[in-house]
Design a protein around this nucleic acid. Structure first.
Lengths: 116, 116
DNA sequence: CTTGAATGATACGGGACCGAAACAATATAA
DNA sequence: TTATATTGTTTCGGTCCCGTATCATTCAAG
């Protein structure tokens, strides 16, 4: 069954996440970092810097720097592609998976209090 | 009827919004600006700088500056409270309402392609 | 082997945002 | 009226992110 979500409900979910972000209830990620994180965790591998830059419509340095930050947070990791050592493959981590799971749980938990 | 939303669906919705944000499919708002916008448009008036600062858990200058930016974008407007001229009341605008509506429509449109 | 293309990282100048502190305007209390 | 409190704004120094341009490494073609 397809989900039935009304605009007001969708916006309330978004507000919930925004408030949680602002109120330090979760690590602060920029929109770009969030887009990268969810792409890496929700779409099939492999993920490269160039591929992510193309998908997000931004330049490569944006991806490199976001990976620096998120790598320091332990949310993703980088590995050289042994088949083509020019490529860098972005991989998931345990911490990152936990973060994404917690993010999903947050939305689910708050969605139970949504206006109809 | 309460909505039934699974974690994967919630995360996909979030990814959709994040990608739209990053790809300039809509005006770029920070998380704080988004939280302010949705609070003003989804919660009952009146809204003051102090009230928003308390709700978001940030300092007042953060609200003032966000209102500067969003005011320039035409998403909200400021008016002195005539009952107590120390207060500034934040009000909705036509442009802001359109933006919020478009945001809701975006999520709804994309949600039809969600994995079950 | 050498040359050119492709990939990711770095350097740099500019812009936006942050929190703390100081400030101006208004309201309330003594 | 004068002093104190409240509200929102501005200033300050600092941090982070952006895009352009450049660089280093690796691959592929001649």
């Amino acid at each position: 069954m397809a989900i039935e979500l009304k605009p007001l409900q969708a916006l309330t979910l978004l507000k919930t996440v925004a408030l949680a972000e602002v109120r330090d209830e979760m690590p602060d990620l920029t929109w770009r970092q969030m887009a990268i994180l969810l792409t890496v965790y929700l779409e099939p591998s492999p993920h490269t810097v160039r591929g992510l830059a193309a998908k997000l419509g931004v330049t490569k340095p944006v991806i490199t720097r976001a990976l620096d930050t998120m790598g320091a947070m332990g949310l993703v990791s980088r590995h050289r592609d042994e088949k083509d050592r020019r490529n860098v493959l972005i991989k998931r981590t345990v911490s990152g998976a936990l973060y994404v799971e917690r993010l999903g749980d947050l939305v689910i938990a708050k969605s139970r209090e949504l206006p109809l």
